[in-house]
């Protein structure tokens, strides 16, 4: 089963995203900030797709993407930014850090699944 790593500092968002992704046949790993995400990768988790918020404590989304791109196993893993930020400057910053795509909240479950399935079909 493909693994999706979900990073968001909102416990409700993490639960909500996990529920939707698990219902669509994915295994989900979660973290409440970028540091926890990096720790998960350090533990050997190999996600097929990473969904991350931008504004998180300790290590934010941009910082996480930069660090994840330095790790061999996630150098080319699709990283989708899921955030309330829709501004061009933040988007450029995330893209420069290595983000693969962008989904602005509020998003629909179908929008989210369409993006994830395109990158990694559930088995």
């Amino acid at each position: 089963m493909p693994v999706i790593l979900v990073l968001d500092d909102s416990a409700t968002m993490v639960m909500s995203l996990s529920h939707i992704l698990k219902g669509a046949g994915y295994e989900v790993e979660t973290g409440m900030n970028g540091r926890e995400g990096i720790n998960k990768l350090g533990e050997g988790i190999k996600p097929s797709v990473i969904l991350t918020d931008l504004n998180m404590p300790e290590l934010d989304g941009i910082g996480f993407i930069k660090e994840a791109r330095k790790i061999a196993s996630t150098r080319f893993t699709p990283i989708i930014v899921l955030t309330t930020e829709s501004g061009g400057r933040k988007r450029d910053e995330a893209r420069a850090a290595g983000a693969s795509g962008w989904l602005t909240k509020p998003a629909e479950p179908n929008q989210l699944l369409a993006v994830v399935k395109q990158l990694c079909p559930a088995k």
């Binding site: 909102s10 409700t12 968002m13 529920h19 504004n55 309330t84 909240k105 509020p106 629909e108 479950p109």
Partner: peptide, 17 residues
Amino acid sequence: LDRLAFSQAQRQDFARQ
């Protein structure tokens, strides 16, 4: 219900921010 929960979760997250 899935759509409602997801939209409410995002709304709550935004209010919290």
